[in-house]
Design a protein around this nucleic acid. Structure first.
Lengths: 127, 127
DNA sequence: TAACTGTACTACGCTACATAGTACACCTAT
DNA sequence: ATAGGTGTACTATGTAGCGTAGTACAGTTA
């Protein structure tokens, strides 16, 4: 379910965090679902338990999972809402990138086309 | 002309590279313009000459400036084209981010509105 | 000649990241 | 109660990237 690219410039623990968020958004991980244990996931991904623990700790801090000592880690009830809220706050970052695209001569119509493509394809996926 | 945020997680030399690119896109830096010398810019920004040199080396590698030993560094003739080409290749990265926005429930119309806002404001800037 | 330019190199310190190992407290099934 | 799972905390080590410091060399220009 999870995959890691050790050669990426992005830290392993951060890759894990982002994958969990994406899976929650896609509905693959749902509220109440139990996450793999720190030790089992570290074996699966061939990384150190501390690295997984760091990712889980960050996810807990963000309110996406809830850690229960002795039992396990579970997807938080408000996980989707927490991520949605974060993504929405990142609209400003997206704005800056689009501005760079405009400066680089990318036409407005190209971006509109891109968006249409994504939203149409996304809708079809759920058919 | 240039400014650095030492507290940013983004390396200083990378901040410099991005600023030069942005200035070229905005037309503030034009082909043939001479860049500040490695040593003078390092004094202005209170960073090490090696850090500036690393940025200039990267810009040279990207074809955005041309280093001439003994004379100085000059904005390349094809600087704008090189950056435009790079930005266009980053459309895929933008696509992934928009897809994330869609998954997070951001409406298509919100993004369209954002784009309209940016392209209209950008046009007015040149009046 | 002197002062500027870019370039190259070594050395040091700092931080982030990842690993390794150990230990503790909690829960649960046996 | 015991054993084995769970999350958590801690120290120690190694590596890589980044930034700084200092020095040196070659080319250009006034």
């Amino acid at each position: 379910m999870f995959s890691i690219d050790p050669m990426s410039r992005c830290p392993v623990y951060e890759q894990l965090v982002e994958q969990v968020e994406t899976y929650v958004l896609k509905g693959i991980l749902k509220a109440g679902d139990q996450m793999p244990s720190v030790r089992s996931l570290s074996l699966t991904l061939s990384v150190n338990p501390n690295t997984v623990q760091k990712a889980y700790s960050e996810l807990d801090f963000r309110g996406i999972i809830q850690s229960v000592p002795g039992k396990g880690c579970f997807v938080s009830k408000d996980a989707f809402y927490a991520i949605e809220k974060k993504k929405r706050s990142h609209l400003n970052g997206l704005k800056d990138q689009i501005e760079e695209m405009r400066l680089a001569g990318i036409e407005k119509q190209e971006l509109i086309y891109l968006i249409n493509q994504i939203y149409e394809a996304g809708g079809k996926e759920n058919d």
